[in-house]
């Protein structure tokens, strides 16, 4: 089997005495669209914070493209584009200044790529406005542009559909599927919305109270029941 793009190995996170993530393990293959599904407060964001090196696991190791995020931070993170929690950007700068800012940090991003990505997320007209004038949906798009800028091989999106209108959600879904299946980009999304995951993901992990309850390929689930039934069944136990 190919080397997994993402590998969680018995990862635990405690804050104070509280165990927020409890020995979770899963891996994601290249080109897979993988969903972390769970109710609010399940620990999805915490897991993604550890994946991107923002937090240190209390125990366990996380590998990205084979590199440990803790020991080999730069190598592990360089192929990752992420939006964690909200698409927070510098509101006092223009959209373009924001993108330039992150392009400078990643190196290897040229003007053509910038123009391309701005067109892709449909912000060409507003790109020279201050971000504080943007709507939530526009910020979400700019956040996406920021995450895709350096052509990452792993895209991590935490609740990406918040603030997008149905058309935007549809577009995003098409785009994520396209880059995953055509370009081999691995996509990791988190969500509490079952219906969304059903349409988007190839595989999901159901997470609740810091524990992974089940990991499954979407086709296996969809075969027997709808995801919703399945989700309720699993979380009820």
């Amino acid at each position: 089997m190919e080397r997994a793009t993402v590998q969680f190995d018995k990862v635990t996170k405690k804050i104070g005495k509280k165990t927020i993530i409890d020995e979770i393990s899963f891996s994601i293959a290249p080109g897979e669209v993988f969903g972390l599904l769970g109710p609010n407060g399940a620990g999805k964001t915490t897991a993604l914070r550890m994946l991107t090196g923002l937090m240190k696991p209390t125990k366990g190791d996380i590998r990205l493209c084979g590199y440990s995020i803790q020991k080999d931070f730069e190598k592990a993170i360089q192929h990752v584009g992420a939006i964690i929690e909200n698409p927070d950007l510098y509101s006092y700068l223009t959209g373009y200044q924001n993108l330039i800012h992150f392009a400078r940090m990643s190196g290897k991003v040229n003007k053509e790529r910038l123009t391309e990505i701005i067109a892709l997320v449909g912000l060409a007209e507003a790109i020279n406005d201050k971000v504080k004038t943007y709507s939530l949906g526009m910020r979400q798009r700019l956040g996406l542009a920021q995450a895709l800028l350096h052509s990452p091989s792993l895209v991590v999106l935490d609740e990406p559909t918040n603030g997008l209108d149905p058309a935007g959600i549809g577009e995003l879904r098409q785009y994520l599927k396209k880059i995953a299946h055509d370009e081999g980009v691995t996509v990791l999304v988190s969500s509490h919305l079952l219906s969304e995951m059903e349409l988007l993901c190839d595989g999901i992990a159901i997470i609740q109270k810091g524990k992974i309850l089940q990991i499954q390929k979407m086709q296996d689930i969809v075969k027997n029941s709808t995801l919703e039934e399945h989700f309720l069944e699993v979380t009820d136990r």
């Binding site: 991107t52 923002l54 931070f73 730069e74 993170i77 992420a82 964690i84 927070d88 950007l89 990643s106």
Partner: peptide, 14 residues
């Protein structure tokens, strides 16, 4: 407080 630190620290820069 802006939350931008998440973007700042998830780039290949120590």
């Amino acid at each position: 407080s802006l939350g931008t630190i998440k973007l700042l620290l998830t780039r290949p820069v120590k």
